[in-house]
Structures are given as structure tokens and as C-alpha cells.
Simulated assay, not measured.
Amino acid sequence: MSVQPSIRQFLSQYFPVFMGAIFASIFSLVFAVPLFFDSYFGTLSMADNVKWSFWGGITLTLVVVHCNFMIARGRSFWVWPLVGVSGLCFLCVLPTIEYRPDSLIYSLSLFFPLVALLLLNSKRHREMRRKLVEIRHQRERIIQSAKASRPRR
């Protein structure tokens, strides 16, 4: 019997919350960025609005993807930029009620950042980050021992 948990057990336990946080972050960007540009920059032409929404969404999506990649590599402090992006989406969308956006879009723009923050702060996500840090430390020890046992030329 192995002391190490299997990858299947690890994924079945932590993969849903990990992917849920990713999807909630991406969906919060999908709804918040266009609403932000449409509300605050109403004088922009439709083409400029689409262009800036696209580039803003792509940039923030790359940040979300990079942060989640670093979390998966065992760098748990990269959760803070994700918290910042979700908080920024929520805080930028909240005052747009003054511009009378579509109620469904507005409510989804507030819902998804809150779900992302909830999932990032969940017990299971925190536990997953701790285990990924342990795996990173094990990996670094194995690499160091392999380098130490290798003969020098």
C-alpha cells in the first residue's frame, strides 16, 4: 500500500474546485469587461468599444491563466492576483447600476466574481494549494538529490 495519494484521487478531490475557480474568474471577465467599457466609455464608437473590451479581456484572461498555472506549480501566493482581478471586476461593475444596464448582465457581472472569490477562499482550494506546495518541495528535493548524486565532469 502506497503512502502517496494517487493522481486520480488528488484530481477527483481538488479538480472541480480548481476548475470552478478558473471558470468563475473567466466568466466574471466575460461579463464585467464589456459592461465596464459600455458604461464608463459610452462616447466610444462601437468598434472602439469592442476593440478595447477585447484587448482588456485578453489581458486579464492571460493574467488569470498565468496565476492558475503558477498555483498548479505549487506557488500559492499567486492566488492574490486572482483575488485582485475578481475584486476589481466586482468593484468596477457595482457602480454601473447608474447607467441602467441589462439586469441579467448586471447580476451575472456581480455574481461570477463573488463565486470566484468564494471558491478561492474555500477550504478545499486552500487545502489543494497546501498540497501543491508540498509536491513542489518534494520535486525540488528530488532534483537536488539527483544533482548531488550526478558525477561532475
Rank of each mutant, 00 (worst) to 15 (best):
Asn121Leu: 10
Val65Gly: 05
Cys92Arg: 13
Ser76Phe: 05
Trp52Tyr: 12
Phe37Cys: 08
Pro95Lys: 08
Leu88Phe: 10
Ser107His: 13
Pro113Phe: 01
Ser76Ile: 09
Thr43Asn: 08
Val50Pro: 02
Thr96Gly: 08
Leu60Tyr: 03
Gly84Ile: 06
Ala72Glu: 07
Ser103Tyr: 15
Asp102His: 07
Ser122Trp: 04
Phe77Ser: 13
Leu88Gln: 00
Leu91Gly: 12
Met46Lys: 15
Met46Gln: 15
Trp78Lys: 07
Ser86Ala: 12
Phe37Ala: 11
Met70Asp: 06
Thr43Val: 09
Leu119Phe: 10
Gly74His: 03
Leu104Trp: 12
Val83Cys: 08
Asn49Ser: 11
Phe90His: 05
Leu120Cys: 03
Thr61Gln: 08
Trp55Gln: 12
Leu91Tyr: 04
Val93Met: 02
Phe37Gly: 08
Gly74Ala: 09
Ile58Met: 07
His125Asp: 11
Leu117Ile: 03
Leu62Gln: 05
Gly87Ser: 04
Val93Trp: 02
Lys51Met: 14
Gly74Val: 08
Gly57Asp: 04
Leu82Tyr: 00
Gly87Asn: 02
Gly84Gln: 00
Ser107Tyr: 09
Ile71Leu: 14
Ser76Glu: 10
Phe36Met: 06
Ala47Leu: 12
Trp78Gln: 00
Ser122Thr: 06
Val115Thr: 04
Ser103Asp: 13
Phe77Pro: 06
Gly57Ala: 04
Phe77Trp: 13
Leu62His: 06
Trp52Gly: 06
His66Asn: 13
Lys123Ala: 07
Asn121Asp: 09
Lys123Cys: 11
Val79Cys: 08
Phe69Gly: 12
Leu94Arg: 00
Phe54Lys: 14
Phe37Ile: 15
Tyr40Gln: 10
Arg126Pro: 00
Leu44Ser: 03
Phe111Ala: 09
Arg73Lys: 13
Ser107Gln: 13
Pro113Val: 01
Phe36Arg: 11
His66Arg: 15
Val79Arg: 08
Leu114His: 06
Gly74Thr: 05
Leu119Asn: 02
Leu88Trp: 10
Ser86Arg: 00
Trp80Leu: 05
Leu104Met: 12
Ala116Tyr: 01
Ser86Thr: 01
Phe112Met: 11
Ala72Trp: 11
Phe36Gln: 09
Phe54Arg: 08
Ala72Leu: 14
Leu119Ile: 10
Leu104His: 08
Phe41Trp: 11
Lys51Phe: 13
Val83Tyr: 01
Leu114Val: 13
Gly84Leu: 13
Gly87Gln: 03
Cys89Asp: 03
Ile105Ser: 11
Pro81Gln: 08
Phe77Glu: 14
Val63Gly: 09
Thr43Asp: 12
Trp55Lys: 12
Ser39Leu: 07
Pro113Trp: 03
Leu88Ile: 06
Phe112Ser: 06
Thr96Arg: 11
Leu117Thr: 02
Gly74Tyr: 04
Gly56Gln: 10
Leu119Met: 07
Arg124His: 10
Phe54Leu: 15
Pro81Gly: 00
Met46Tyr: 14
Ala47Ser: 10
Leu120Phe: 05
Trp80Gln: 07
Val93Ile: 03
Tyr40Phe: 14
Arg126Tyr: 00
Arg126Asp: 01
Lys51Ala: 10
Gly87Ala: 03
Val63Asn: 03
Val115Asn: 06
Cys92His: 15
Asp38Trp: 15
Cys67Leu: 09
Met70Arg: 13
Ser53Asp: 05
Phe36His: 01
Pro113Gln: 02
Glu98Val: 14
Phe111Met: 00
Phe111Cys: 05
Phe77Gln: 15
Ala72Cys: 07
Gly74Ser: 07
Glu98Leu: 15
Val93Asp: 05
Cys92Asp: 03
Pro101Glu: 06
Cys89Lys: 06
Leu62Pro: 00
